[in-house]
């Protein structure tokens, strides 16, 4: 029996989706929907569904926007955050969620990512980080681990990968977190908190791509890849308690950083009020 969420929030006449069997993007899309659903139905501070906008770029992750029955905008490769900034600034009442991938936001769109972090504009970026370019058939991405293989790295990747959540925190994002496909409840909660956070938030979600990443790197099938996440994704405290030599493949789940900074659109509103008042005095 499909979840009621599907009927409520997905454009069911456009299903089934295009993702491969075993892809983690479906679960992460579910997490996004569940997080938004809980906010729409929050008895204290409900977010009106009509004011929710989903923006995406190009790649496997970014196909999620079209399936979601909100205001949705599937933009150009790498530019989702820049489009989303225009939407949010033009109408700050909107709740804008960006769904993007590791290549989309950390390679071709890296500049927009760091500047949106710095600006602290109230967007929530959910990264479906599958560590590979899936849509084009398995080329290495800025998050493919060093030494792993892709169709453009048959001898192994030479460059070091980005930690997107750490990158965002370093660039000044006021809320950064890491989730994954296996830890559904935790990841959903992180996305919910990210949307609620006033300012720029980024949730780096480890996806799984058994078709192009897993197969090429002998990581097993989808189930084995999820088992790997189950064993290696640790709550923040537990991860930090580990001595560095035991961390190896382990990664921290949860909120990495949270700060209160002035939010861009609220600050700009003050400028509008000041400029309008001064202009009024001239008359």
């Amino acid at each position: 029996m499909p979840s009621e969420l599907i009927y409520n929030y997905m454009r069911i006449d456009h299903l089934p989706h295009i993702w491969c069997a075993g892809c983690g993007n479906g679960v992460l899309t579910h997490d996004v929907v569940r997080a938004i659903d809980s906010l729409c139905n929050d008895p204290d501070r409900p977010i009106p569904r009509e004011k929710v906008v989903i923006v995406s770029g190009i790649g496997c992750s970014s196909r999620a926007a079209g399936y979601l029955d909100f205001n949705s905008m599937h933009t150009t490769h790498g530019r989702a955050i820049a489009f989303a900034s225009g939407i949010k600034i033009a109408n700050p009442e909107l709740t804008v969620v960006v769904i993007t991938g590791d290549g989309d936001c950390a390679a071709i769109g890296g500049n927009h990512l760091i500047h949106a972090c710095r600006r602290n504009i109230d967007l929530t970026v959910v990264v479906f980080n599958n560590e590979i370019y899936g849509m084009t058939g398995g080329q290495y991405s800025p998050t493919t681990p060093r030494g792993d293989k892709g169709t453009t790295a048959v001898y192994g990747v030479v460059d070091r990968p980005f930690d997107i959540a750490a990158l965002a925190a370093g660039a000044g994002a006021s809320f950064t977190a890491r989730g994954d496909v296996y830890h559904v409840k935790e990841t959903t909660e992180l996305i919910r908190q990210g949307i609620r956070h006033k300012g720029f938030s980024l949730i780096d979600c480890r996806s799984v791509c058994p078709t192009y990443y897993g197969r090429k790197n002998k990581k097993g099938d989808a189930v084995q890849m999820l088992k790997w996440q189950k064993e290696n994704g640790l709550p923040m405290k537990q991860y930090r308690a580990l001595p560095p030599e035991q961390r190896a493949d382990k990664y921290a789940l949860g909120i990495l950083s949270r700060n209160e900074y002035p939010e861009y659109t609220e600050e700009y509103q003050k400028i509008i009020e000041m400029a309008m008042a001064e202009k009024g005095k001239e008359k």
Binding site: T75, T76, A82, G86, K88, I89, A90, N91, I272
Partner: peptide, 28 residues
């Protein structure tokens, strides 16, 4: 800002074009 509008200096030319299109979708 004097007429209640928004100006933003984006990080590059691609971003400014993208933001303009986004703003258009939001009604501006």
């Amino acid at each position: 800002p004097q007429v209640g509008g928004h100006f933003i200096q984006m990080e590059d030319e691609l971003a400014s074009m993208a933001a303009v299109i986004g703003a258009s979708a939001a009604g501006a």
